[in-house]
Write a protein that binds this DNA or RNA. Structure first.
Lengths: 225, 225
DNA sequence: ACGGGTTTACTTGTATGGAAGTATCCCGTA
DNA sequence: TACGGGATACTTCCATACAAGTAAACCCGT
């Protein structure tokens, strides 16, 4: 049974943090953009302190950088961090795929098929946000299927940098190819083949190795090593 | 050539953060212990604000929990988080081992042997801190050998929870067994066998699955699900 | 002795003022 | 026109005061 949780008004700090984080992840705040405690505080009608504390949390996530006495900036996308996150995802998700492939829950397989259908629709309609969200859910299903929800939670922090990349330039991504790879993964799981599932996941996640240089070349200002 | 970096006095916030973090990781601050902005600020002679901001950063690392209007507490060790971190480490480090095994740098092999020697000495002398530090360096060599330093940096956040565990009760760990497993890993790398290296790493990191329940049973107050 | 309501002491959250540092602009000078 | 140098307008950092909420202690009536 679910225990009830008492809803309490979120602190100003939390609200500012959530709002900023969302905007950074969606690319609405460009990497390198300059922020200001005073400015934002004035804009939303609160004091500087909660805004400042929201900045600290953002910086802790690697999404912002505060330079003492100089200013606070939206963090640029670290190529090294993206490559690292990609490697970790490949290692972990291919392991999860192996685990799941041994006895894939039917519920999970069904929901994966649903997500693929959603992705086709989003691709046809050019709905970038919907596509990315569905893609995230698809991968998350691997973790839930393996009863490793906590793993997904840990991966999310790493994924954040990769998601910024995708929002920046969704057109550079081969969406049709992505959907095909998702289908390959699902098919391997249905066949209960750990080897095929691992291969499919690794192939899928290696796609970014091709895309990253293209995107970085197109927006050099948004990246650092 | 290395560019010079101008040394600037670290902010009070940073100093408090580093100090607290170190103490939490070494287990000198027990999980669940109660903190107080006012108390710590008074003890070191600064105002509440920097201490408060250090707490925010600790909370962001999952090492503390601030409950509004109630108090700030050293975070208990989440069993789920430890298991998740362990799974991720196994997946990533076994991949790194495969990569390194293809062409292991002699420099890395030599330093691994050195660390194993250090671990034997630390074990004989009962030097817990030295043993853990050396163990960390040993695993880190895998990442450096694969030219993936950034990956190690990402893993460190996850490892922090596991390290707290080890400091809590080092006696519960089978140190001799650990050293033997390190030797197995090194031997597999010397033989340039990716398969053996992967097996050795996975076996090594699965050891914690045995130890975790024992330790959790011994210190139930320090854990949450 | 026990229960219940009130007070009181303590917690974190927010606002505000000033301190210290940085970068830019402007103006005088060669 | 090019170049220094100083005032100035920012920035984040830290200190302090107060607001709002929690929890424990306490007192009082039964």
């Amino acid at each position: 049974m679910d225990r009830i949780v008492i809803a309490t008004a979120p602190s100003v700090t939390s609200q500012v943090y959530d709002w900023m984080r969302e905007r950074v992840l969606r690319g609405e705040l460009a990497p390198g953009a300059r922020l200001s405690e005073t400015e934002i505080a004035g804009a939303i009608g609160v004091s500087r302190q909660p805004v400042r504390e929201a900045f600290i949390r953002l910086a802790s996530d690697g999404l912002a950088e505060v330079r003492p006495q100089r200013g606070t900036y939206i963090g640029k996308i670290s190529v090294a961090a993206v490559l690292s996150a990609r490697l970790i995802r490949e290692a972990v998700e291919s392991d999860l795929a192996r685990m799941v492939a041994a006895d894939p829950p039917v519920e999970m397989l069904a929901r994966m098929a649903e997500e693929i259908a959603l992705q086709e629709r989003a691709d046809a309609e050019g709905a970038v946000e919907a596509f990315i969200d569905s893609d995230d859910r698809f991968h998350r299903l691997l973790a839930t299927g393996a009863r490793q929800e906590a793993v997904w939670h840990d991966l999310e922090k790493l994924k954040s940098q990769m998601n910024r990349l995708r929002h920046m330039s969704m057109r550079a991504f081969d969406r049709a190819g992505t959907i095909g790879q998702h289908r390959d993964i699902l098919e391997a799981l249905r066949r209960r083949s750990p080897d095929a599932a691992e291969r499919a996941v690794r192939a899928h996640l290696r796609q970014m190795l091709d895309e990253l240089p293209r995107i970085a070349a197109r927006h050099p200002d948004f990246f650092t090593d």
